[in-house]
Simulated scan of single mutants.
Amino acid sequence: MADEPEEKGKPEEEGADTTDWKAMARKWEARSKENADKAKAYDELQEQSKSELQKAQEKAKRAEDELAELKAKAELAETRARVAKESGVPAELIFGADEGEMEANAKALAAWGKPSSAPRTHKPGSFSADAGDGRDAAKRELARQLFGSGE
C-alpha cells in the first residue's frame, strides 16, 4: 500500500491541475510591487539626469500642444455659433466635427423643430352623423348664441 497516494478527501485524477493558484498570485503580486518601485526609481533618476534645456523643451512642447487644442476648440465653437446664427437653431444643440457636419445637423434639427401645419380633416366644418343625438344640445345653443344663428 506504499504505492497508493494519500487521500485528502478527494481522489487525485490523472492530469488534474494541482497548482496552488493563491500562492502563485501572491508571488506575482510581490514581484509586480517590487518592479513598480524599481520603475518609479528609474523614472526619478531619468528626470534628475535631464538637462535644464531638455526640461524646458518638454515644457514648451506641452504648452504648444495645449495651445493647438485650445485653438481647435475655439475654432469649432466659432463655427458652431455661425451655423447657429445662419440656421436659427440654438448652438447648444448643434454638434459635428467640421462645418459640413454642423450644417447638416442644424438643417435636420430645423426641419424637426418646424411646427407642422394644422391637422387635415376629411370634411372641415362638418359634423359626424351621430352629432345630432341631443346630448350636446346645450353646447350647440351656446354656440348659436355666441356666433349667430348660422343663416
Results as ranks from 00 to 15, higher is better:
34 E>T: 00
108 A>W: 03
37 D>K: 11
95 F>I: 15
41 A>N: 07
131 A>F: 11
78 E>S: 08
110 A>W: 02
109 L>S: 08
29 E>G: 15
143 A>E: 06
81 A>L: 03
47 E>H: 10
88 G>R: 05
142 L>R: 13
128 S>Y: 07
121 T>W: 04
63 A>R: 14
29 E>Q: 13
54 Q>H: 05
74 A>D: 15
80 R>S: 01
41 A>W: 11
48 Q>E: 09
54 Q>E: 14
36 A>C: 02
130 D>W: 09
131 A>M: 06
57 Q>H: 06
138 A>C: 07
96 G>M: 05
77 A>Q: 15
124 P>I: 15
111 A>N: 07
67 L>V: 02
131 A>Y: 11
121 T>M: 08
75 E>R: 15
44 E>K: 06
104 A>E: 09
93 L>E: 14
98 D>I: 10
94 I>T: 01
61 K>H: 01
145 Q>L: 12
126 S>H: 07
116 S>T: 10
122 H>M: 12
129 A>F: 08
123 K>G: 00
71 K>V: 15
69 E>F: 01
74 A>V: 11
131 A>R: 10
117 S>G: 13
108 A>N: 07
47 E>F: 00
70 L>E: 12
42 Y>T: 03
143 A>N: 08
47 E>I: 02
76 L>Q: 01
49 S>V: 00
33 K>S: 04
46 Q>S: 10
30 A>E: 03
70 L>F: 04
43 D>P: 08
109 L>V: 13
132 G>R: 06
143 A>H: 06
135 R>W: 06
65 D>T: 14
141 E>H: 07
98 D>Q: 02
144 R>K: 14
53 L>R: 08
145 Q>S: 14
79 T>S: 04
100 G>K: 10
29 E>M: 08
113 G>T: 04
107 K>S: 09
36 A>V: 00
66 E>R: 01
64 E>M: 11
71 K>W: 02
37 D>S: 12
139 K>D: 15
97 A>T: 15
40 K>H: 02
28 W>R: 15
37 D>L: 11
30 A>T: 12
111 A>S: 04
142 L>E: 09
126 S>M: 11
139 K>T: 06
79 T>W: 04
64 E>N: 12
78 E>P: 01
28 W>S: 11
49 S>Y: 05
110 A>M: 09
89 V>D: 00
86 E>F: 11
132 G>M: 07
71 K>M: 13
54 Q>T: 07
117 S>T: 10
77 A>C: 09
86 E>A: 09
147 F>R: 06
86 E>R: 03
46 Q>H: 07
142 L>Q: 12
45 L>K: 13
36 A>R: 08
37 D>R: 11
77 A>K: 12
91 A>L: 09
40 K>R: 11
115 P>K: 14
87 S>Y: 13
82 R>A: 01
148 G>L: 05
61 K>D: 01
147 F>K: 00
64 E>S: 14
38 K>W: 02
54 Q>N: 09
140 R>L: 14
71 K>E: 15
84 A>E: 06
81 A>V: 07
140 R>D: 12
140 R>C: 12
47 E>A: 15
85 K>G: 07
32 S>G: 04
141 E>G: 10
133 D>P: 07
130 D>A: 15
109 L>Q: 11
102 M>C: 04
108 A>H: 08
58 E>H: 05
141 E>A: 14
88 G>F: 11
51 S>D: 05
57 Q>N: 13
38 K>L: 15
35 N>F: 06
110 A>I: 10
87 S>T: 10
78 E>K: 14
116 S>F: 09
